[in-house]
């Protein structure tokens, strides 16, 4: 089963989506609308977002695999709900920058609280999976708590969704094709099998430091193959058997409107 949050006919719903793409609300009402309809507004799929953990440098890319010395410890940074937006929504490109890129990532959504979770038990704490696009503004990188908040904590720059797939509905999460298309052209093509620190490792690692809680999310990093984005571009991040996440880039002025 898949789970999402949508606005339809002016109302917000928590919905389940079955294998036949039938959409049912929490109180059992079946919605008469197709999944790809523009009448659906997609919200970020986690209803009460907690701490968002994101990984840097977590893919050993094929081209440099032989020369690559993998990091001994994961590079983790934190994001909050101000960065979230949904499928088919907009993200903005800040004014006067040179390089903004997407990062297509598999997200593990935590479903159960725990601390000091062992690797072999880790998947019991994962409710399901979704896809995010963890945009970065490279111009703003500084070597202090890098990647710093100015790069990674901006409004709207973490689209997520459209839905969460139940953990048990994904046969092998460590072998999923991951692709990104910009304006219809594939620019990133990798596999979750190249992840350096896998989900059980990350659950164990983080839960040795702190308590994980339902609604926390782990965005597991992106393979190589990132390109610059401009207002007007449409980027689609896809992970096989999970979902495809579409985002349109707008200017800072268009995004903030009256607050610009």
């Amino acid at each position: 089963m898949r789970h999402a949050r949508i606005i339809f006919n002016g109302r917000e719903f928590d919905v389940d989506i079955d294998a036949n793409d039938r959409i049912t609300t929490a109180d059992g009402q079946e919605l008469d609308v197709a999944l790809d309809s523009d009448d659906i507004t997609w919200l970020p799929p986690v209803k009460e977002p907690g701490t968002i953990f994101a990984l840097g440098l977590n893919y050993a890319d094929h081209a440099t695999e032989l020369a690559f010395e993998p990091p001994k410890e994961p590079l983790v940074f934190i994001k909050h709900a101000n960065t979230l937006t949904g499928h088919k929504q907009v993200s903005y490109r800040p004014d006067n920058i040179e390089f903004q890129h997407y990062e297509c990532e598999l997200v593990a959504v935590i479903g159960k609280a725990g601390k000091n979770i062992k690797r072999e038990d880790a998947m019991d704490y994962v409710a399901g999976y979704t896809v995010c696009n963890d945009f970065a503004i490279r111009d703003y990188l500084e070597n202090y708590y890098r990647p710093n908040l100015r790069v990674k904590s901006r409004d709207s720059l973490l689209p997520m969704g459209p839905w969460i797939v139940d953990r048990d509905d994904v046969a092998d999460v460590n072998n999923l094709r991951l692709t990104t298309e910009v304006n219809g052209k594939i620019t990133q093509d990798g596999s979750t099998r190249d992840m350096i620190f896998d989900i059980p490792f990350l659950v164990e690692y983080l839960s040795k430091i702190m308590t994980l809680s339902p609604g926390d999310m782990i965005a597991t990093g992106t393979p190589h193959g990132v390109v610059d984005m401009q207002p007007g571009d449409t980027v689609v991040c896809t992970i096989e058997n999970i979902c495809s996440l579409e985002t349109r880039i707008v200017s800072e002025k268009e995004y903030y409107g009256d607050k610009y």
Binding site: G50, T51, I78, Y144, Y145, N148, L149, R150, M210
Partner: peptide
């Protein structure tokens, strides 16, 4: 640093 150096204390803290 040219900008304020920021970090979060997340909800578990």
């Amino acid at each position: 640093p040219t900008q304020p150096v920021l970090y979060y204390k997340p909800r578990n803290t």
